[in-house]
Design a protein around this nucleic acid. Structure first.
Length: 274
DNA sequence: CAAACTCCCTGTTAGC
DNA sequence: TGCTAACAGGGAGTTT
């Protein structure tokens, strides 16, 4: 499931292929993928627009469009199984292609999504959709102090807070587990129980895990559609396998309705915390 | 405010 | 062996 590193890799892939291209046509093969408009209007609004740049915010791919009279933004959220490609129009489509945007170079941008959870938005003001997102964990603004501020006064376990996109944008289930593993923090620890040392380790772990994963183009998850990812999780998806740090077994529990993997020896639950 | 649950989907897997 | 039912998963929205 694409998270920040996979989305960043996707943006890197798209940028050189889309930047400067003119949108010539658009086929919507699964209407509900387009979240903000009906297919007719969506097509009408994007055909004739030029793609100015492709960037990322949280887990969103941000495609900025412009023309003489208007500017707008396409936002793509891959959710569970979404992926994108830019291919020559002559190559046959995949049965799971949901939206195909034809470019002015005989190529097509294809949004592919087996489970149909992915969403494409179109907005004049992208902030209307992106505005709720929290801080970018790889930005310079994301300091230890900021992390403390974000988590301060929050109740409940630490892991669900890491997954909340309005606090920190881009962390999903894989990198939440990985960050907590690297920081040696139990996923069910209450946010309020974290000490300064924990914040320092967690802050550094989040950044290292995300950066490493970007360099490796994301996670090599058999289920993952993002091709080429070589990041090897240490906790996520490793139930019953040995911890790469201490050789103890990785166990799986459910936290906030999400599968959660951690090392019982490395990530101890503090004795007296309730 | 937090936590739990629902919904959207389909490929995979557990269980019979 | 073959089938079905349960499950996983991100995140928005709703209910408790």
């Amino acid at each position: 499931m694409p998270e920040l590193p996979e989305v960043q890799s996707t943006v890197d892939y798209l940028s050189s292929r889309l930047k400067g291209r003119l949108i010539k046509d658009c086929s919507i093969l699964w209407a509900r993928t387009i979240f903000t408009h009906n297919p007719t209007n969506f097509k009408k609004l994007i055909v004739g627009q030029r793609i100015l740049e492709v960037t990322r915010r949280g887990k969103f791919i941000v495609i900025s469009l412009g023309s003489q009279n208007a500017s707008s933004t396409i936002l793509v959220h891959l959710r569970m199984s979404g992926s994108v490609e830019v291919l020559p129009s002559s190559i046959a489509r995949d049965p799971y292609d949901r939206v195909v945007i034809a470019l002015d170079n005989k190529k097509e941008f294809r949004f592919n999504d087996v489970r149909k959870f992915g969403k494409i938005y179109l907005a004049h003001n992208p902030q209307s959709i992106l505005g709720r997102l929290g801080i970018e964990p790889l930005s310079s603004e994301f300091s230890v102090q900021k992390l403390v501020e974000i988590i301060a006064n929050k109740k409940g376990a630490i892991k669900p807070l890491l997954l909340n996109q309005t606090f920190i944008a881009g962390i999903g289930n894989i990198y939440a587990d990985e960050s907590l593993w690297l920081a040696k923090i139990h996923p069910k620890r209450s946010a309020a129980s974290l000490k300064q040392n924990d914040f320092i380790r967690l802050h550094s772990a989040i950044r290292k895990v995300l950066q490493d994963a970007i360099e490796l183009k994301g996670t090599d998850n058999g289920d993952d559609v993002v091709a080429g990812g070589m990041y090897q999780p240490n906790a996520y998806g490793r139930e019953d396998l040995p911890c790469s740090r201490c050789n103890s077994k990785i166990i799986r529990i459910v936290v906030g309705q999400r599968g959660t993997h951690f090392c019982k020896r490395c990530q101890k639950f503090p004795q007296r915390i309730k």
